[in-house]
Write a protein that binds this DNA or RNA. Structure first.
Length: 276
DNA sequence: GTCCATGTTCTTTA
DNA sequence: CTAAAGAACATGGA
């Protein structure tokens, strides 16, 4: 499910319920979703207070009263929801946490298991190697990071060490908004293009958060509801459909092994690029 | 049976 | 050596 807007929506939904709560019960249904392998998450969590919850990139960061932190990453199909304890526990639910005084339990379900639970010590930095947060990033910071790679801008935006939180949907949507050809080598973008791209990323991400994310299939907010931003996608998953701006059929190509959607007319190569 | 999927990491290639 | 491309991971839906 998870790109920045979806993860932010989950955090927004969980925060009011779990922050300030004490963990009363933990069940780990399979140990291979926990990293490092062998970590005793049940022992480490029982009786602890959740003092903070926040998002960093696509990671959901829990902070305990001990100062320890752990991260839940939703991978491709993960869901983190609050459900009544008597509600049916769906298949692929790997981790369930109950809190004192809360008539809801936190459930982590992830059929494909690309996600998981990462336990961090007090000193172990959660955001080591992660790029800047796109919503508060200055375009010059992005420009500096694009300067030293010959990869396409599309592929580069998916690199979490360059910018944190952007995935396949919002990379395509942001490049459309900025009118930039996804095949453009990152280092060839002009300052003007990077400025437009930075603005586009912030605009698209904010709109998507307001719409509570995009639900294509698995994504659910903490209360189990779906997002609505998918209905406002301009290019993602719209191959062959007319561009909402110019009616040209949307193209689909594969870049870095990921499907990439764009309008060949609105996102012309060379339009405003550094090398022309 | 085939192909594809909102992600990341390890391996191979250039 | 490094950067970039490719494969792998696991499950389910079209």
């Amino acid at each position: 499910m998870p790109e920045l807007p979806e993860v932010q929506t989950v955090v927004n939904g969980l925060g009011p319920y779990v922050v300030g709560r004490r963990v009363s019960r933990v069940r780990l249904e399979r140990t291979d979703v926990v990293f490092p392998p062998g970590t005793d998450v049940v022992g480490a969590l029982i009786g602890r207070l959740i003092v903070a919850l926040h998002r960093r990139g696509k990671k959901i960061v829990f902070t305990l009263d001990t100062g320890d932190r752990f991260v839940i990453h939703l991978g491709m199909s993960g869901q983190l929801t609050l459900d009544p304890p008597d509600a049916t526990v769906p298949k692929h639910t790997h981790f369930v946490v109950d809190f004192a005084g809360l008539p809801l339990q936190l459930r982590f379900k992830d059929p494909r298991r690309f996600g998981g639970i990462w336990w961090h010590g007090i000193d172990d930095s959660v955001d080591a190697a992660l790029g800047p947060e796109p919503l508060s990033m200055n375009w010059r910071v992005l420009a500096r990071r694009l300067d030293n790679t010959r990869r396409s801008i599309k592929t580069t935006l998916l690199d979490q060490t360059v910018v944190a939180g952007i995935g396949n949907i919002y990379a395509d949507e942001s490049l459309f908004e900025a009118r930039i050809d996804p095949l453009t080598p990152a280092y060839e973008l002009s300052d003007e293009q990077v400025r437009r791209l930075t603005r586009a990323i912030k605009l698209i991400l904010r709109r998507a958060i307001r719409a509570k994310g995009s639900t294509l299939r698995d994504y659910r907010a903490a209360d189990g509801s779906t997002g609505s931003f998918q209905s406002r996608h301009r290019v993602y998953d719209r191959a062959g459909l007319p561009c909402r701006t110019c009616k040209t059929p949307i193209s689909r190509i594969v870049l870095g092994g990921r499907s990439t959607h764009f309008c060949a007319t609105c996102q012309r190569p060379s339009y405003g690029s550094r090398l022309g």
